[in-house]
């Protein structure tokens, strides 16, 4: 294919499919909806897609809410989280250490990225900020390619979770999925309460509202910005680490996740944690049930949903009206 080298920078995440399969299969969808086993299986798979998306999207939405920056390189943190976790797991054989490595490594990365690069383009054109992030998407993907190689990698399911799957109403639910959903829920609750109740949360919200005033009161806003970025990076890294046992790892893996978490934040409303949770769950369910009814148009369904939400309520389901 003689497409210009411009396209080389990204490999689009196309699913392989044969042209014979029907693009609309409503019978399969109806059949699943009437069977409790299928319903449970599809719902849990939708939930874990949604929960992973939530972890990535909530970082995105936090960073946007406080720093007013659309972090286009957020998918790279997800990718690094997965790779850090894989390496730590292969070195130590400890699942807990792997998760820690994924989360802590990306937190440090996020802090450095924000302090050294992003902090230079605050107040600049949105396009400039996007460009810096875009540059790092390219750089990070190649860095991963250099360190871990371009081929698909897998971390493998930790032995602790290699147990019999649970059967709920006839549907198969791997125990690891429950852990994943649990972790994401805990994060959602801690973040929600922390941001609304704790002192640090109040300072962060104040900084989002009026950074000049917060700074005048003797609070180091640079530290807050760096901290929020590190937190966002950490959550994306945690999502990557949690996804590592169940997904294959490849350079550029953050990309489709990034696009989907954008959809989540836009649907839920930029800057809203509850919105990110609801949006992510909706999107996960659309993905898992849509893949039954519209196997070739699952992605299209998500974008259609986004268009409908944006047109009817531009600020998203839970977004506040722009000041």
């Amino acid at each position: 294919m003689t497409v210009s080298a411009v396209f080389v920078s990204f490999s689009a995440p196309y699913q392989a499919h044969d042209n014979e399969s029907a693009s609309v299969d409503l019978d399969a969808l109806a059949g699943c909806l009437s069977s409790s086993a299928c319903l449970v299986t599809q719902t849990t798979s939708g939930l874990i897609i949604g929960m992973l998306l939530f972890l990535v999207a909530v970082g995105l939405t936090l960073i946007f809410g406080v720093l007013k920056v659309v972090n286009f390189s957020h998918g790279a943190f997800y990718m690094f989280g997965a790779y850090f976790a894989m390496t730590a797991y292969h070195l130590t054989e400890s699942f807990a250490l792997a998760m820690l490595a994924g989360a802590a490594g990306t937190a440090i990365l996020g802090l450095i990225f924000e302090r050294v690069f992003m902090s230079r383009v605050y107040g600049a054109d949105v396009l400039m900020q996007l460009l810096v992030c875009y540059a790092f998407v390219l750089i990070f993907d190649d860095v991963v390619r250099i360190i871990w190689g371009p081929e698909f990698k897998s971390m493998g399911m930790p032995s602790a979770f290699q147990v019999m799957p649970l059967f709920i109403a006839g549907g198969v639910v791997p125990p690891y999925y429950l852990l994943l959903i649990g972790v994401a829920l805990v994060v959602a609750i801690v973040l929600g309460i922390g941001l609304s109740r704790s002192r640090i949360g109040k300072v962060v919200r104040a900084a989002a509202h009026n950074p000049g005033m917060v700074s005048a009161l003797g609070i180091n806003t640079g530290l807050i910005y760096g901290g929020v970025f590190a937190l966002g990076g950490m959550l994306a890294g945690l999502a990557g680490a949690l996804a590592a046992p169940v997904r294959s790892l490849t350079p550029g893996m953050g990309f489709s996740v990034l696009i989907e978490s954008f959809i989540v934040t836009v649907i839920g409303g930029m800057g809203s944690i509850l919105g990110a949770l609801i949006g992510a769950l909706l999107l996960g369910l659309i993905r898992s049930f849509g893949s039954l009814g519209f196997p070739l148009f699952t992605e299209g369904l998500m974008y259609l949903f986004m268009v409908i939400v944006l047109v009817s309520k531009p600020t998203g389901l839970f977004g506040k009206e722009a000041a």
């Binding site: 920078s9 690069f117 460009l131 790092f136 390219l138 750089i139 993907d141 190649d142």
Partner: peptide
């Protein structure tokens, strides 16, 4: 690894 080179050039322009 042209992503790295391209990325650095973009950074040069942006920053």
């Amino acid at each position: 690894y042209h992503g790295i080179v391209l990325g650095v050039v973009i950074l040069f322009f942006a920053l």
